[in-house]
Amino acid sequence: MSSEPILRVKDLTIDLLTAHTVVRPVDGVAYELSRRETLAIVGESGSGKTVTCFAPLGLMPVGVQADISGSILFDSRQLVGSDNETLRSLRGKSIGFIFQDPMSALNPARRVGRQIAEVAELHLGMTARAAETRALELIKMVGMSDPEIRLKQYPHELSGGLRQRVMIAIAIAAEPTLLVADEPTTALDVTVQAQILRLLKEIQSRMDMAMILITHDMGVVAGAADRVMVMYAGRHVETGPTERVLSQPQHPYTMGLIDAIPRKQDAIGSRFRGLPGIPPILGAPITGCAFMARCGYAVDACGERRPPFLPTAVPGVSAACPVLNIRAKECA
């Protein structure tokens, strides 16, 4: 990945303000992403993995105000503080989105062909006729059988896997440079999941896209991502190349997550490994390390201030853990 990063996020902090509460789901997150690279953002519900990607692009529910600070450079354009007009022109054009539940992301009352063509008309300035041709091309590209028939169908006539293929076709219609996929296979069956992941990788290399894969499934990460960012309580706790993070996790939380995956060697009827305690409830930022309460290695210093994010002994892997960083310093 020698090329210049296409996406550079620094110190991204997002506060969500509603009529009832205020929470900070993203707290000082930083990462980079190059062309053709896939970054997996891994975390549990409430870790901020979705908000990190969606709020800066103006994708927020009605009645929620997102206060964003920090910096997001996308294609050397600053997204933080951009007006809605700029963000709207980026969404769907330079940045494509795939959602977890394709049924609610598609318009149930319109034919899928029309929905794909619409994106081409809007962002590529195509005529209706040219857009229809483009839609057919895209349907073929996402590997749907009987493309002409599919174009004329409504979303409810398709199975979950086919709907997700339509979502992908819409997302790539304007040839985006970045594809954000939020749990693209979570709602799908394992046999279909394999097909969709393969398709995503294929399209990515064909279109030279960068991809952010938001997921909680380490199996998906292992198969599809070049780099991983693990998030906990709105903070990135570990980043690095997939093969190193998954085989030599450094942060205790990552260790716990990976250790919790049942393995083939585990005896039948043996106890499950997991983390003690429960994830923190979103709210005010936590003083010190957010994982401290559940961590087996915690020392008093962990609770004093937020651990800095530093390189570890494993090349390319950085983590935010005071205990680990002490060890890293000793090694060096």
Partner: peptide, 25 residues
């Protein structure tokens, strides 16, 4: 079905070339 389950270990996962079930239920 068993072959479709991705492995959390990147080394095995990359080497693995699961036979895909074609089509849908």
């Amino acid at each position: 079905l068993l072959a479709s389950v991705p492995e959390a270990d990147p080394a095995t996962e990359r080497r693995r070339n699961p036979p895909l079930i074609t089509g849908e239920i």
